[in-house]
Amino acid sequence: MVLAAVIVLVPRMPRWDRVKKSFFDVEQMRDSLPRLIDAFWLDVKIFAWTTPAIFVLALLIALARNSRSPALFPVRAFAAVYTDVMRGVPVILWIYLVGFGVPGLGLERPYNSPLLWGSVALAMTYSGYVAEVFRAGIASVHESQRAAARSLGLSSWQTMRFVVLPQAVRRVVPPLLNDLVSLQKDVALVSLIGPIEILRQANIDKAKFANFTPFIVAALIFLAVTIPLTRLTDYLWHRQQRRTTGTRVAA
């Protein structure tokens, strides 16, 4: 209903032709699409190499925060401060600070690339978020599982590795995918410090042709990736609900 109203009514609005020309210029779309897809490839690459780094870092931080030995207090404290600081400061600020700041120290090529340090900034902030997801997963494994493992003589590390972590990770797959959807978009923030990825390319095209259509195309390209990823997240979440909650109450 609403959608139909929009489709019927919007083009009847005054100056619709201006809007159409500025945002939905078919010629412009045809012209920009190949360049934008090329530029999007860089987004994909940044995404591909930051994701594993984020998972490894986040897991280490989560394990540090879940350590129980009194002697490891400094490790726990560091992990807590790390997640607080990474999550408490806007992503864009980290990207400026690390992406501009570190190459500005006068490092040699290729270690002075904003692309590299922009990716590092992304990995740092996102590992803060993902660490909290892992931590929640680890905390959700019932204490009786640890008791069973320890009672068999497994060390606390073996208990974590064989019993707690495998269950924890399975439980947090949906929220992890959610963070990945979010990362997939935030990769575009790296454009602000130089690398020509899709958002930057769209901006260049916009400026060159004085037309906003390249932004629309960029948005559609993002949606083409994030929507399937979101649906996958939903599917996995529902599947898990079905498995863990048993009988459902009728609506």
């Binding site: 009786s144 599982q145 008791a147 069973a148 493992a149 009672s151 495998p166 269950q167 399975r170």
Partner: peptide, 11 residues
């Protein structure tokens, strides 16, 4: 030790 709630590893 064997527990009241079994505590088998479900995975």
């Amino acid at each position: 030790i064997v527990f009241q709630s079994f505590n088998l590893f479900p995975h």
